[in-house]
């Protein structure tokens, strides 16, 4: 590890961290003109770990996501996937190396049906996109897998409905299913429950909790109950810097988080040190 932050140093490391990190983000620095949006941001995510990312609007969460996903190439620092440096790789290459993401605003094939969306995902996942001489219908495994996935999501009734006609929550589910269909090593989830009803939120939570055991997850979420319900570790970003990083329970207990995010007054306990 590059730098051990104070919170983490005091805590017992979760056993997951003893394995090599799936995703390592190292001293990321990025700015738009004079506006610094990422300032020395580092984090590691081990296989099976769910890492939460919180911070106020403009804290640089989305930028960090875009940097990890390859939409933005940072000015400094590095991104490593399974020990392999991917800082300069384009998004599609990262995706093929096992990094999947869902988008904050649903980014689906809106005029295609649910089935077709899942089939497109399946073709990419199976690497048969170059097959131009065989009918798609003969790629049984892809078609059947799409149906199975839809079943698991409870979307079998809308299988042949065009996506743009579906409810927001359903589209959100499909968004995550599409990312999971790639069988990624690392999954980035950008506000997975934003704009969803409580019922749908529970659904999504189950879906995320249900993901493969060794998947490394990075999740941005405004609903603190959802976030702390899922995350093993949490990073707090503010003005592009890491304000706090550590086990979920510790971060949850910290004054800053209680004050700013959980809406409760700080309990007078031992002050939490803030890394400078």
């Amino acid at each position: 590890m590059s730098a051990v932050d104070p919170v983490d140093a005091q805590a017992m490391r979760p056993p997951a961290l003893e394995r090599a990190p799936r995703l390592r983000v190292e001293s990321i620095h990025h700015a738009f003109g004079s506006l610094v949006v990422s300032d020395d941001v580092s984090l590691d995510i081990a296989p099976g770990e769910c890492h939460g990312l919180i911070g106020p609007n403009g804290a640089g969460k989305s930028t960090l996501f875009d940097i990890i996903a390859g939409e933005i190439i940072p000015l400094g620092g590095g991104v490593h996937l399974d020990g392999k440096e991917i800082t300069g790789e384009p998004p599609d290459r990262r995706a093929r190396l096992g990094l999947a993401r869902s988008f904050q605003h649903n980014d689906l094939f809106a005029e295609l049906t649910v089935r077709e969306n899942l089939i497109v995902g399946g073709i990419v996942a199976h690497g048969i996109g170059h097959v131009a001489w065989r009918a798609l219908a003969r790629e049984r495994s892809v078609c059947e897998k799409a149906e199975m996935l839809a079943m698991r999501l409870g979307l079998e009734d809308v299988l042949d409905t065009e996506v743009h006609t579906l409810s927001y929550g359903t589209r959100r589910q499909l968004e995550i299913a599409l990312a999971l269909e790639m069988e990624p090593k690392v999954l980035l989830l950008d506000e997975p429950t934003a704009g969803m009803s409580p019922e749908e939120t529970v659904h999504i939570q189950e879906r995320i909790a249900d993901s493969p055991p060794d998947l490394a997850l990075l999740i941005v979420e405004h609903d603190m109950d959802v976030l702390f319900g899922l995350a093993d570790r949490v990073t707090v970003l503010d003005y592009g810097r890491v304000l706090l990083q550590g086990d979920a329970e510790e971060v949850r207990a910290s004054d800053i988080v209680r004050q700013r995010y959980l809406g409760t007054d700080p309990v007078p306990t031992t002050p939490v040190s803030i890394p400078s």
């Binding site: 599609d92 995706a95 689906l108």
Partner: peptide, 18 residues
């Protein structure tokens, strides 16, 4: 199907790894 996917949402297909 990949070509159709590009037509409808090139960005997402790239993000998926196409």
């Amino acid at each position: 199907a990949m070509l159709l996917a590009i037509h409808h949402n090139e960005h997402r297909l790239r993000a998926l790894g196409g």
